[in-house]
Design a protein around this nucleic acid. Structure first.
Lengths: 135, 135
DNA sequence: CTAAAACCTGACACTGACGTCAGATGCAAG
DNA sequence: CTTGCATCTGACGTCAGTGTCAGGTTTTAG
């Protein structure tokens, strides 16, 4: 599988895949001409990387964590373990922030919906009924 | 209240407060010499802005939403309303992503903890054996 | 009055994941 | 062989919020 295929299967751009490799998140075997080749395993790994990116981890942090994925425990999990716990707690905190912000937005939405419902006219028209202001 | 006071009370840097004003998120009355003055109201507003920033909204989006805070409903809530709903849904989706990532991290943590518990002391290599090539 | 501290505007730096372009090479198909 | 697409490396651009510095004015404390 070449890089274009992996990109298509994961929905990640070719550029990003090269970047991941540059950051040590991904490895590839190279053909004699220098082209990257992947086994199917990389699909799951890319998905995992994407998940961690989406959770706000930096490529550096992900790189430090990946050894624990590949071969759990050993001396590598020494401080990586703490890091995992810290990141999890940070994510939990972030979820809390998001929830708070969402609640605030919900209240705002409700307040504005009330006004919209109360206002007599056309804040939002369902299916446009027979035009009252006929032209 | 001057900008330094507001910064101290909100925990936001002076630089950021000026930036917020530049982006239309914050207003200030100016003294004849041009210095910004605030009433206590701005404290809550800055906190609200920070919340939305933390939830991933851009200053542009926040600027579009703030009129709905200041005077709920009117024609301004026309498309701002949709935007609020979209942002809320986006946040909900993001919370889902974070939760998924956290679950993955939790599993990873468990896997590594098991190994750490199981392996007796040898997770870290013992002190390097007597140097063969002595100096 | 004077020195220090706070404030002003304007500009540049930075970070980090990724887009994008250029120029060169590899590879499958007619 | 040739055409054309995929791939390679390397470099620069982007975005957005914020840090930081420069050079100047205002307010405050002694």
């Amino acid at each position: 599988m070449r890089i274009g295929d992996l990109a298509a299967r994961t929905g990640v751009s070719v550029r990003s895949l090269r970047y991941y490799e540059e950051q040590g998140l991904l490895v590839s075997t190279r053909s004699p001409s220098g082209q990257r080749h992947y086994t199917g395993d990389e699909i799951g790994r890319v998905a995992f990387i994407q998940r961690l990116y989406a959770a706000g981890l930096s490529s550096r942090t992900i790189a430090d964590l990946l050894p624990c994925v590949d071969s759990p425990s050993e001396q590598n999990s020494d401080e990586a373990f703490e890091r995992m716990v810290r990141e999890r707690d940070r994510i939990t905190g972030h979820i809390g922030e998001l929830t708070t912000a969402r609640d605030a937005l919900d209240r705002l939405i409700d307040a504005n919906r009330d006004h919209r419902a109360r206002l007599p006219t056309l804040t939002r028209l369902p299916p446009p009924p027979p035009a009252p202001t006929s032209r």
